[in-house]
Amino acid sequence: MRLAYRPPYDWPAMLGFLQARAIEGLERVEGNRYSRSIGLAGVHGWFSVGPGDADALAPSLVLQLYFPDPQARASIVARIRRLLDLDTDLAPIHRHLCSDPLMARLIASRPGLRVPGAWDGFELAVRAVLGQQITVGAAIRLAGKLVARYGQPLAAVGAPAGLSHVFPEPAQMAGADLASLGMPRSRGRTLSGLAQAALDDPQLFAPKASLEHSLSALLALWGVGDWTAHYVALRQFREADAFPAADVGLINALAALEGEPVNARQLLARAEAWRPWRGYAAQHLWTAL
């Protein structure tokens, strides 16, 4: 199956982002293809996606999908398109952001850079909480332990090598002692509370009416602060103006690019000029490091 998109599209950047955050047993990047397991309503499957033929009439990625329920295929493809940010028209975003000379320079160097989405909101929120105040690599190692202990073994034929589990469901995490995986007890409590909240409200990670509604729904959860809420709003709710201003990577990137120290307050003030596309500006800053 081909997944068409409106160019430009920077697949190497998207693949690099996914590879750096790939959870062992759940995801795999091999060559120029990304693969992962999926689970919906207790049914397991997997998909693999990579670049299409450069000589094709319409630019596209090539998707290989296995899921035993054919009625779910359309919704799965829609979720993959959101994950890969295939439907965004970058032209108006670039016109606005390029009024800032720094953004103009970054966009010129990566004109097809997209904002990666998420396969599942609960999974993304768990990843974000695991990543609080630690490196990406450390968070991914913790996530791998979580998947190995609480995820179900993948029950799907023909899965690519390395895919062994699906991500744990909220019910599997709500009452678990997650701190035993090697994280602060307060973070384990946040994850357990997040799982219980997802059980109590199945629409917790459904699209909201605005960025403000998205943030308020997340900030009401114990242990979820501004950084986590903006990160989830950007990647799950696809709020293009979400902006985790306290992110160390963003602060360091702006400081390195402009050659002088920057704090979170100064970064947030600078980002006012990037509204309503601060999330895309953030992706360019993250990628610039």
Rank of each mutant, 00 (worst) to 15 (best):
Met1Gln: 07
Tyr5Gly: 02
Arg6Glu: 15
Pro7Cys: 04
Pro7Gly: 08
Pro8Lys: 07
Phe17Met: 06
Gln19Cys: 12
Gln19Lys: 10
Ile23Lys: 04
Asn32His: 06
Arg33Lys: 10
Ser37Val: 03
Ala41Asp: 13
Gly52Gln: 02
Gly52Thr: 01
Ala58Gly: 01
Ser60Gly: 14
Val62Met: 02
Tyr66Val: 13
Tyr66Gln: 10
Asp69Ser: 15
Pro70Asp: 15
Pro70Met: 11
Gln71Arg: 14
Ser75Phe: 10
Arg79Ser: 12
Leu83Gln: 12
Leu90Cys: 09
Leu90Ala: 13
His94Pro: 10
His96Leu: 15
Leu97Glu: 13
Ser99Gln: 14
Ala104Trp: 04
Ser109Pro: 02
Pro111Ile: 10
Gly112Asn: 01
Arg114Tyr: 13
Arg114Lys: 07
Val115Glu: 03
Asp120Asn: 09
Ala125Asp: 01
Ala138Pro: 06
Leu146Cys: 08
Leu146Tyr: 06
Pro153Gln: 05
Ala155Arg: 14
Gly158Tyr: 03
Ala159Asp: 11
His165Glu: 09
Glu169Gln: 13
Ala174Tyr: 04
Ala176Asn: 08
Ala176Leu: 05
Asp177Asn: 14
Gly188Ala: 03
Ala195Lys: 01
Pro202Glu: 07
Gln203His: 10
Leu204Asn: 03
Ala220Pro: 04
Val224Ser: 01
Gly225Arg: 01
Trp227Phe: 10
Val232Trp: 00
Ala242Cys: 05
Ala245Glu: 15
Val248Phe: 08
Val248His: 11
Ala253Leu: 11
Pro261Asp: 11
Arg265Asp: 15
Leu267Glu: 09
Ala269Arg: 09
Arg270Asn: 06
Glu272Asn: 11
Arg278Met: 10
Leu285Tyr: 12
Trp286Ser: 06
Ala288Lys: 08
Leu289Thr: 07
